[in-house]
Every structure is written in structure tokens, then in C-alpha cells.
Design a binder for these strands. Structure first.
Length: 453
RNA sequence: GGCGACGUGGCCGAAUGGUUUAGGCAAGGGCCUGCAAAGCCCUCUAUUUGGGUUCGAUUCCCAACGUCGCCUCCA
């Protein structure tokens, strides 16, 4: 049973399932108006690990994750660049999934788009108005937060407390709203903007409505888990929940939020601070697995700093694991050690303690390497199977790197022949040549192993 | 101002009311090797500060200092 921190109750509690054997998860996806950044990468990796682990434990996982393809930022960019807004959303979504593919993130089971659910949103807003939880102004339709008794549940702050602080921020749309915390469900269109028709006037949906409609339609009332980055806790998730409460519908049963990615100075990466790092740059420069490795060694709720030193350490650690995969590739026929697997599950069930799980992996690899040195093949195969089972459940693929061309293999044979003949000058020359081509060359009594570095 | 999180060794980063406080990276020594690489073994350095509770705290409580987040752009 997976125990998971729940933001609503501020405690670790079992993830209860509405339908036995099945997990329903809603993950807030990106607004497609720019390239994915490190924060997006962290969120998708964290929930990819969660999803894979749940699947590994035998559950059927339905993961719905939306694409916000209509939003002020999209419209602004379209206007700035004089392009159709659909041009931007389509392109950005393609870039998004390409990047996620490189990260090894499995595509969600459902990828709803906001623009596909406008009619349902209009219907929902209509119901909210009927229930006296929303009202029309001259610039849109707003939800009345005072109609939601426990508004602030996720923010852990009452409405009064929220308003008492906050310094001197300008309240968006203050002039039109009954309460400063009321938020837009529908925004009336301005000239030149994309719009849909509604009983109150042409316009477009506010950000917080799509997730309510799509999660309830795809996953149903009382779905198991709602997740996203910590920055979505408030206002986005609070406001999703508020709409659902105002509708009289049971929303998510459990709320999960991942921690931030911070910059080298320890500050949150944020678009407004201008210190975001592009995920595509990272993927271009490093082994994509390094980011997953870094996150696996960090608890998902802790902030994580992504720096060159960090990533380099992960690249080195991966090299060791790849090397292990390569040297034990002849012993891939074992069954996992039940004790190791039990420890793995215990760690994961404890609020996804992936750092402990990785420590277990490294310990097991060391034990298997030692068994390899000792010629204890039976132990090697069972420990190797354990390592691969765990890493597979975490989405971390190892590369034995043994898919080298025949002429390279031939050079390895030549190298061995030279060594056997004690012609070390020739042997070293061959090795240097291979290494300069980027291969890792490991000679041993069993023969030379050449793999991609 | 309100609410919350956190301060662990050279770096990253877990865990825990008590024999020796994970793991990764880096560093040093050894074994192995023709020499390397890979691997194995060994070693090194830590719980911000000050009080309190306790037989005993890094862990619980209080305070200080510091860092970070949220309080209607954000994964």
C-alpha cells in the first residue's frame, strides 16, 4: 500500500482507491506557449515514476494530463509574433512531447485539450451561476469564493488571512469583483482574440475551469489523486476544488505536489524571475537519464538544484550502472531476490522514498559486482534481476552499450590477440584508437568488452 | 503582516529518541591488471547556534540566526 503525503491534510496517508485495482490520476499539464523548462521536466518525471511504480505493483493506472491550449499568454505571443495562435500551441505541444519522450516519460493515458472542452465548461459555468456560486460582470463571469465554505483548504489559510497580507499587490479585476479572491471562469473577448460563444457573451474560459471539467468527465467524481507542481497548490488547485465544491461534486481524494527546481543561488526557477533553464538545453547537453537519476536521489517534495556538478555526478553514477549492465549481461536469466524487492517496495511505499530505493540499487550492484569477481554466477543473476526490476519500475533504463558494429568487435578480437601474444604496443594502439572514437574499452581475462561511452 | 518548509561531511542527498548517522560524486590507500579501464576492499570529513524534555537527541519542544516558498503569471 502506497503511503503518500496529502497536501489537504498535511500528512502522509494511504492512497485510497475508489475502485480496487485501479488508480485514477489527474496531472496538471503545461500551457503550450513556450519551450518546456526544468520545472516541467521535474513534474513529469516525478509523476512518471509514480505511475510506473503503481503499474509495477499491479494496479491499472489511468493518468489524465491536460494541455492548456487557450490562455492569455498564448494570445499575447500570437499577437507579438503575428502568428495564428493555433500555430503556437500545435508547435509547442509537439516540442513538449518530443522532450518528454527523450526523458523517457510515458505518454499519459488521456491528453485532453482545453479547447476541446469549451462547451462543457460553458455548461458548468451555467450551473455555477444557477447555484448562485458565480456571477456575471462587465468583463466576464466570476466564481464567488464566499460560496465555498472551506475555501483555502489547500492554501492552509483562511480568506481573511490571505487578504490581510500580501503586501500591496494589485488585485486583478478588483473593480468588477464582489470579493478580491473571486476568480474568472469566463473572460469576454477583446477585438482580435479567439473566442467561443456563451449565454453571457463571446469569450474564452479562465484557466481554472478546464481541469475541473476534464478531470470529472474523464476520471469521474471522487477520483483518487490530483497532482502537479507546488506552485499550482494555490491558486490553481484551490480554485479547481472550489468550483467542484460549488457544483456539489466530490473532487480529488488526495492531493500531491512536487517541490521546486531551484537555481544555483537556491531560488525557485520561475518565469517571472527570468531564471528558468530550458529543458531542451539540458537534453541536448546531457544524457537524459541524468535528470531522472538526480530526481530519484532527491525526495520529490524537497527543492532540487540542477547544476552542472549535480548532473555530472549523476552521469558518473550512470556510467557505473551501465558498466554493471555490460559486465553482467551474460547472466540476465535470474529471478529477483525477494528480500531486495521487499526493501524496494517498503521504501517506495513510504511516500516515494526513491533516494533510499536508489541506495538499495547501488548496494545491490556492489554486491553483484563482488559476486561477479568471486565467480558466484547464481548470486550475480539474482541480484542483477533485482536491480533491473527496480530500475524498470523507476523508468531508468541501463545501457549495456553492446550494440557496436562488427568492425569494432573485430578490433576487440585483434586487441585480445595482441595481448595474448604480449604485443602490448599493438594492443595499446588499438585501445587508444577505440577510445579516441568514444568507446569504453574494458579488457579482462574473459576478453575485451567494448561499448558505447 | 499571515501561513508553511528547511538548515546533515569537500559537493549532492536520505534516514533516525540510543550498538558503527544511507547512498551518489569527489579525494587518499590497497587488491586485481603487461599498463590501464571496470570492479572489489579500506580510509577520510557532518547533523546552524543557544536553551529545555529525556538515562540518552541530529531526531521532540522553545528561542535565535540563516535560507526558501505561498498569500490570485508559474511544473
Amino acid at each position: 500500500m502506497l503511503n503518500l503525503y496529502d497536501t489537504a491534510t498535511q500528512s502522509v496517508k494511504p492512497l485510497a482507491l475508489r475502485d480496487p485495482g485501479k488508480v485514477s490520476i489527474y496531472l496538471c499539464g503545461p500551457t503550450v506557449y513556450g519551450p518546456p523548462h526544468l520545472g516541467h521536466g521535474r513534474a513529469t518525471l516525478v509523476y512518471d515514476i509514480l505511475r510506473r511504480y503503481l503499474t509495477y505493483t499491479g494496479l491499472e493506472v489511468r493518468l489524465a494530463s491536460n494541455i492548456t491550449d487557450i490562455d492569455d499568454k498564448i494570445i499575447n505571443r500570437a499577437n507579438d509574433e503575428g502568428r495564428p495562435w493555433q500555430d503556437i500551441t500545435t508547435k509547442c505541444e509537439n516540442v513538449w512531447f518530443e522532450a518528454m519522450g527523450k526523458l523517457g516519460v510515458q505518454r499519459p493515458t488521456d491528453v485532453p485539450h482545453a479547447t476541446e472542452y469549451v462547451e462543457q465548461m460553458v455548461n458548468m459555468i451555467h450551473t455555477l451561476i444557477e447555484r448562485d456560486a458565480a456571477y456575471v460582470t462587465d468583463d466576464g463571469v466570476y466564481l464567488s469564493v464566499t460560496a465555498v465554505p472551506d475555501y483555502g483548504l489547500l492554501a492552509h489559510q483562511s480568506l481573511d488571512d490571505m487578504l490581510s497580507g500580501g503586501g500591496d499587490r494589485e488585485v486583478f479585476g478588483a473593480g468588477n469583483k464582489k470579493h478580491p479572491a473571486d476568480f474568472a471562469l469566463w473572460k469576454f473577448t477583446k477585438p482580435g482574440e479567439p473566442s467561443w460563444s456563451s449565454p453571457w457573451g463571446d469569450g474564452r474560459p479562465g484557466w481554472h475551469s478546464e481541469c475541473v471539467v476534464m478531470s470529472l468527465e474523464l476520471l469521474g467524481e471522487g477520483f483518487d489523486l490530483h497532482c502537479g507542481g507546488a506552485d499550482l497548490r494555490f491558486p490553481h488547485h484551490e480554485n479547481e476544488r472550489a468550483q467542484s465544491v460549488a457544483l456539489g461534486k466530490t473532487f480529488a481524494n488526495h492531493w500531491m505536489h512536487n517541490g521546486f527546481v531551484v537555481d544555483p543561488e537556491g531560488e525557485k526557477m520561475s518565469k517571472s524571475l527570468g531564471n528558468v533553464m530550458n529543458l531542451l538545453d539540458l537534453l541536448e547537453k546531457y544524457d537524459a537519464r541524468a535528470y531522472r537519476m538526480l530526481l530519484l536521489q532527491t525526495h520529490y517534495r524537497s527543492p532540487v538544484r540542477v547544476g552542472q556538478d549535480n548532473i555530472d555526478a549523476c552521469v558518473s553514477a550512470l556510467a557505473g550502472l551501465d558498466s554493471f549492465a555490460a559486465r553482467t549481461s551474460a547472466h540476465a536469466d535470474g529471478e529477483a531476490n525477494s528480500e531486495v524487492i521487499a526493501k524496494f517496495r517498503a521504501a517506495m511505499n513510504n511516500d516515494l522514498d526513491t533516494a533510499t530505493a536508489m541506495a538499495l540499487v547501488f548496494d545491490t550492484v556492489r554486491a553483484a559486482n563482488a559476486a561477479m569477481d568471486a565467480g558466484d554466477v547464481a548470486t550475480v543473476s539474482t541480484l542483477r534481476a533485482s536491480v533491473f526490476e527496480i530500475l524498470n519500475a523507476l523508468g531508468l533504463a541501463l545501457s549495456a552499450g553492446d550494440d557496436v558494429d562488427a568492425d569494432i568487435v573485430a578490433k576487440g578480437v585483434a586487441l585480445d590477440a595482441a595481448r595474448a601474444a604480449k604485443d602490448f604496443a599493438t594492443a595499446d594502439a588499438i585501445r587508444n584508437e577505440l577510445q579516441s572514437q568514444g568507446y569504453v574499452v574494458e579488457t579482462s581475462k574473459e576478453g575485451t568488452r567494448i561499448r558505447r561511452g
